[in-house]
């Protein structure tokens, strides 16, 4: 597929993946709550919620900083799409940057600014608390995340996504870098403030950063959040799960299957665990997860050196 065609296909795939996330989320929520049946209802539910937000009235609050709030919402969506641009759909990516790994990292930290801005904009106390919770969360997940993705790049000796995929022709990185893979999955949930890490939008802060959003604003914000989750799950595939490698199916299909598998895992994790409070998680992240990823990076570096030096 030529690059221009891929650029057009990517948004469609992203939206479809967001839809799948919403449907799966609904199904699992119903199952966790003990409701029987209604699978058909779960299929229609995302459409109903979207219609509700489209037809809803937008609102704002007194002394709100509308510009910053809009910048947050727009930034989240744009960054998610750009982050997904480096994922190889099959063998080639819409934009196969030579520094794809660092690019993904740069685009996902836009979420830090975005959620803080959305929490700040409405000039509302609990909304602000939600925004700050996300900054605390960011500080907690970012370093293990960076070490995890650098470990994958280290294993392949390159920052380019397609090189990392090529290096996994024999064995997936998730198999011999399990700590990095686990840290990456946790940070993927944390960066999209999803699942056990959705304290910034928590019920105990009345919706947190999204508390004062309604109508199209809310739709775009929630959509941007799920887009970021999809992008993070999609990037896990070339980094740790071998990209398009696999028997029988074409590479593009494998990428799709693997992305959906990672998304299913993340959605399941959301319903399996209660929300993690940042004042409890930060210590675990810095004292347990960070040394773990550093040791993992060291182990991978030793393996690479023993293999005869990884490098171009």
């Amino acid at each position: 597929m030529a690059a221009p065609a891929m650029v057009l296909v990517l948004p469609v795939l992203l939206v479809a993946a967001v839809w799948c996330v919403a449907v799966l989320d609904g199904v699992l929520a119903d199952r966790a709550a003990g409701h029987r049946g209604g699978a058909g209802r779960s299929l229609v539910r995302p459409g109903q919620e979207v219609a509700r937000l489209l037809a809803g009235q937008r609102r704002t609050t007194q002394a709100a900083d509308g510009l910053l709030r809009w910048a947050g919402i727009a930034g989240l969506i744009v960054a998610s799409v750009l982050a997904a641009g480096v994922v190889p759909l099959g063998w080639k990516a819409p934009a196969d940057l030579s520094v794809g790994v660092v690019w993904f990292n740069a685009m996902e930290v836009v979420a830090w600014a975005a959620v803080w801005l959305v929490g700040w904009g409405p000039d509302s106390a609990l909304s602000l608390v939600g925004g700050y919770r996300f900054v605390a969360q960011g500080l907690a997940y970012e370093l293990p995340h960076m070490f995890a993705i650098i470990t994958a790049a280290l294993g392949a000796g390159s920052l380019r996504m397609s090189d990392i995929v090529d290096a996994q022709a024999g064995l997936w990185f998730a198999v011999w870098m399990p700590a990095a893979f686990a840290a990456y999955l946790l940070s993927a949930a944390a960066m999209a403030f999803w699942g056990p890490f959705d304290a910034p939008l928590g019920r105990d802060v009345a919706g947190g950063a999204a508390a004062e959003l309604s109508g199209v604003d809310r739709l775009l914000f929630e959509g941007g959040r799920r887009l970021l989750l999809v992008a993070a799950a999609a990037v896990a595939v070339p980094l740790f799960l071998g990209g398009g490698h696999g028997p029988w199916l074409p590479a593009g299909a494998w990428v799709l299957v693997k992305t959906l598998a990672v998304l299913a895992l993340l959605v399941w994790l959301r319903h399996r665990l209660p929300v993690v409070r940042m004042d409890r998680w930060t210590e675990i992240s810095w004292i347990v997860l960070l040394p773990l990823t550093m040791v993992q990076a060291l182990a991978v570096a030793l393996v690479v050196l023993a293999r005869g030096g990884g490098g171009p």
Binding site: V102, N105, A106, V109, V110, W112, A113, V135, G138, E142
Partner: peptide, 8 residues
């Protein structure tokens, strides 16, 4: 990458 984190 660094500037976004630092500015936040």
């Amino acid at each position: 990458l660094m500037m976004i984190i630092e500015m936040v």
